[in-house]
């Protein structure tokens, strides 16, 4: 009972669990021992391979655990010094060794909110355009372009935002808007003041452009899971494209769209280079959105290598821990939603 197996020598059969099927036609004891020996080796090889796979899977868990542990350990000095006041204080003074995370947290949240407010509707719009409205000839090229652009590294968006977009934005949008709203109560505070081109709002805009292809790609994939019978049925009842999309397709893949948006939010929250270039790196919460600010990731990227003193470095690591916790929660929700969506698809 031998088997010729592609590319390897003749080997006796073993089952996947490593038990041997003994060959009843065997009579010679020496041949039998030899075969049992080969079978044992094959079984051992199988076991080794399985263990390697298991070890690699555990390595993924170990990396995750390592990230959390190292961040927690690194932030202990800062936590001892500032306690929970760390996340509610705005002061950030390396020279006096006082650190508070409020300004970076504010910057991270505000830039992400601006990005989401712009990118979610536009991204879904693009996805709808691609699935339903786009001429068939353009569908593939535009779809591919969107996917390729989702892979462009964030530093490219950063350098473009810094050299090209920010000066243009200052001249053609910020200054006119700031002058126009200067005397209006709420808007004047939000969009008034001296303009620099770079700032919280610019960072949010660049972020929105960056996550746009990502949201469109996910939404398009999700929209394509809508069974065409559903669409055909509603068209057959006389529904317009808008009604089919709004009342049939979007409700059908609601979970997936929301999950995709959350995934994009996770990216926006943790995005470093695109933001660092254009946010202005000022550790203060300004009332105006046009004013320079900072975000968690930008603070770390800017200051970490220059951070002298253990407390300074520890404060930055604690910022990293906060960022990781925030993104973990968002990404975990996104994963669970997308999983649920996939399960529903199987039904």
């Amino acid at each position: 009972m031998f088997v010729a197996w592609a590319g390897c020598e003749l080997r006796p059969i073993t089952t996947s669990r490593g038990r041997f099927l003994t060959d009843i036609s065997l009579s010679e004891t020496s041949a039998l021992t030899a075969r049992v020996e080969t079978a044992r080796k094959a079984g051992a090889g199988d076991f080794r391979f399985r263990m390697m796979a298991l070890a690699a899977a555990l390595a993924v868990l170990a990396i995750f655990a390592g990230v959390i542990t190292s961040l927690v350990f690194g932030s202990i000095p800062a936590f001892k010094e500032f306690g929970f006041g760390f996340i509610t204080t705005e002061a950030w003074s390396p020279t006096r060794e006082r650190f508070g995370a409020l300004a970076p947290i504010y910057g991270t949240l505000v830039t992400s909110i601006i990005a989401m407010v712009i990118a979610v509707p536009v991204g879904i719009g693009i996805a709808i355009f691609l699935t339903d409205l786009c001429p068939r000839m353009l569908r593939r090229p535009i779809g591919i372009a969107v996917e390729l652009l989702a892979g462009i590294p964030s530093i490219i968006y950063g350098i473009w935002g810094f050299f090209v977009f920010a000066p243009w934005f200052q001249l053609h949008v910020q200054e006119p808007v700031a002058t126009a709203v200067a005397d209006i109560p709420v808007l004047g505070t939000l969009f008034g003041g001296v303009t620099f081109g770079i700032g919280t709002f610019t960072a949010g805009l660049i972020l929105s452009i960056m996550i746009l292809p990502f949201i469109s790609a996910v939404t398009r994939d999700v929209l394509e899971t809508v069974p065409s019978v559903l669409k055909e049925a509603s068209y057959g009842l006389g529904a317009t494209s808008w009604e089919v999309m709004w009342k049939v397709c979007l409700p059908f893949c609601q979970t997936g769209v929301v999950g995709g948006a959350m995934l994009a939010l996770g990216r926006a929250l943790g995005e470093t280079m695109a933001v660092t270039f254009v946010i202005g790196n000022a550790h203060k919460i300004a009332p105006s959105l046009f004013a320079p600010g900072t975000s968690i990731s930008a603070s770390i990227a800017n200051e970490f290598t220059e951070a002298t003193g253990d407390l300074y470095r520890s404060a930055l690591i604690e910022l990293g821990l906060l960022l990781f916790v925030i993104t973990f929660i968002v990404l975990a929700c996104a994963q669970l939603m997308l999983r649920q969506m996939e399960k529903g698809k199987g039904k």
Binding site: G66, V67, G74, G270, S297, G320, F324
Partner: peptide, 23 residues
């Protein structure tokens, strides 16, 4: 493992940098 891997996939890369710095 699948869940953790998907989190790592989109975790902020700067945090990975901090982890390797410490390690």
């Amino acid at each position: 493992v699948r869940f953790v891997n998907d989190i790592l996939l989109s975790a902020p890369s700067i945090v990975i940098g901090l982890f390797v710095y410490e390690l």
